[in-house]
């Protein structure tokens, strides 16, 4: 019966579509889990690794608002360490020198596209892409130069 053939063809098509990920996975090599480059210098993150894995975005959003809107620039972690709240400066340059081997691996793997990098500049391995004017001495008070 034409009708029955049509239905069964439709069913087969639906089942094939529903199980497509399986066929796809069986046909290709399993994707390796991303391996992350460990930070070179630092040994501990500002928060436990488990927390950072799941919730680094909230911490970063927190930092962002604190720095930009409240003018607060330092962060004291649970161990009492004080760090500057800066994505490019602290997270990247100080700890995870290579964004592509740290941020991007997981983000690419999970298909998450954060908007951070639309503005924030990724430092190169040597520090900045091209350094700006020489950093002024830290001792000078505002206005002291005048």
């Amino acid at each position: 019966m034409r009708n029955r053939i049509l239905i069964l063809a439709g069913l087969a098509l639906c089942l094939a579509a529903l199980t497509w990920p399986v066929w796809r996975a069986l046909a290709s090599a399993p994707a390796p889990a991303p391996s992350l480059a460990r930070p070179v210098g630092a040994t501990r993150c500002v928060a436990p690794v488990g927390f950072m894995r799941t919730s680094h975005m909230t911490l970063l959003a927190e930092w962002r608002d604190r720095v930009v809107r409240d003018g607060v620039r330092t962060y004291t972690d649970a161990d009492g360490r004080v760090v500057t709240m800066s994505l490019s400066g602290t997270c990247l340059r100080a700890c995870h020198a290579d964004k592509t081997k740290f941020c991007d691996r997981c983000h690419d793997y999970a298909g998450v596209k954060p908007t951070c990098w639309g503005c924030h500049v990724v430092p190169t391995a040597t520090g900045a892409i091209v350094s700006g004017p020489a950093a002024p001495s830290r001792s000078s008070r505002p206005g002291a130069a005048l």
Partner: peptide, 15 residues
């Protein structure tokens, strides 16, 4: 979020 992992966010004094 913070409580879940026990991470405490430090809060420095404002400028």
């Amino acid at each position: 979020a913070a409580a879940a992992t026990g991470a405490a966010l430090g809060c420095a004094s404002p400028a």
